[in-house]
């Protein structure tokens, strides 16, 4: 029987077919389900991202290759001189082996980078013409950057005693440490070492001027001798600095050489030349007086007992008065 379906019946039938199909086949399309776990709150998201940033800073795991010409020295770097020979050797090593450790920098708002550690490696890289360098980029504020620079450079080799002393002093001045014990903990050394290096800073200005120019000229042991000499010869600063300056040309000299140089110069000068007394004798050749200049005194010895001391005294006074008057 050819029963004609109405349009509506036809549609209904199709709809039923679709409903059966669709329930299982998703209309022939891959349909991804939305997530079904609970979303975290906006607050939790913000907190987590901020924590993640902190972890990034602490973990220091952000290493990049940056342009050498964008790297600036740290204003807090304690090293004042760079040994050219060392930089050259370092450059050769970089060329041969490549860069083992990344330098440490922080990013400035200007887009440039400020060194925390690696001042010599950057100089070596410039010397051998590298345009880029591997750097660990850390996020630090000024104060933390200052501390990091002080501490990291101290820990590396061949910072001189004087430069270490300056760094220790700075850490106290800037409030990173309150006393020598705290400085020692901060820099990871003994308190005795802190004390030794700091002692160089109490040398007289004239000596520190030399150290500012040649921070590696001498260490704390030599410094002890310098301050001992200063105590022995309070007026001998010129001689002492002369002695120290000899080191600049001859670094084989030691503190004993300094001591003997200073003693030779200053002890000789203070031993006044033997002044022979002037003898005043009578016609018979008998000594009547001996006159001797001793520092600011004129000592007159009266040899003859018959001479009236009062007469000699008044004669001397008259003579001195005349001298004074004639000078006016």
């Amino acid at each position: 029987m050819n029963q004609k379906k109405t349009e509506a019946e036809f549609n209904d039938e199709l709809r039923r077919k679709f409903q059966q199909d669709m329930a299982t086949k998703n209309n022939g399309m891959v349909m991804t389900k939305p997530p079904s776990t609970n979303s975290k709150s906006l607050e939790a998201l913000i907190e987590d991202t901020q924590n993640a940033q902190l972890v990034n800073q602490d973990g220091n795991n952000y290493i990049e290759t940056i342009a050498v010409n964008l790297v600036d020295d740290s204003p807090w770097q304690p090293r004042s001189r760079y040994d050219e020979g060392y930089i050259q050797a370092l450059g050769e090593m970089l060329q041969d082996r490549g860069q083992d450790d990344p330098i440490i920098v922080r990013k400035l708002p200007t887009g440039r980078f400020e060194l925390i550690a690696g001042h010599r490696r950057v100089r070596a890289a410039r010397l051998i013409g590298w345009s880029t360098i591997k750097a660990q980029i850390v996020v630090l504020n000024d104060r933390d950057a200052e501390l990091a620079t002080l501490v990291s450079n101290e820990g590396r080799v061949d910072l001189t005693d004087y430069e270490k002393g300056l760094a220790y002093r700075k850490s106290v001045d800037r409030g990173f440490a309150k006393n020598q014990t705290e400085v020692a903990r901060l820099f990871g050394c003994t308190q005795a070492r802190v004390s030794q290096c700091l002692s160089l800073l109490s040398l007289p200005l004239e000596v520190k001027d030399i150290l500012d120019k040649y921070p590696g000229l001498f260490g704390y042991r030599y410094g002890v001798v310098v301050s001992d000499l200063m105590k022995e010869f309070p007026l001998g600063i010129d001689t002492i600095t002369q002695g120290i300056e000899q080191l600049i040309d001859n670094n084989e000299l030691n503190s004993d050489d300094l001591r003997s140089f200073v003693e030779r110069a200053l002890l000789n000068r203070s031993r006044s030349p033997i002044v022979k007394p002037t003898i005043v004798s009578n016609l018979q050749g008998d000594s009547m007086f001996t006159v001797k200049i001793k520092n600011n005194q004129i000592v007159i010895d009266i040899k003859d007992e018959n001479i009236d001391k009062n007469v000699v005294n008044s004669l001397m006074i008259d003579a001195l008065r005349n001298l004074v008057l004639s000078n006016q």
Partner: peptide, 27 residues
């Protein structure tokens, strides 16, 4: 049909947000 499929894309985007950050809007 295309519009239906676009919901599936969106669900996928939300799924990515869920797995990478744990935060996503309810669809």
């Amino acid at each position: 049909r295309y519009s239906t499929k676009s919901v599936s894309y969106l669900a996928k985007v939300l799924g990515e947000m869920e797995s990478s950050l744990g935060k996503y809007p309810e669809l």
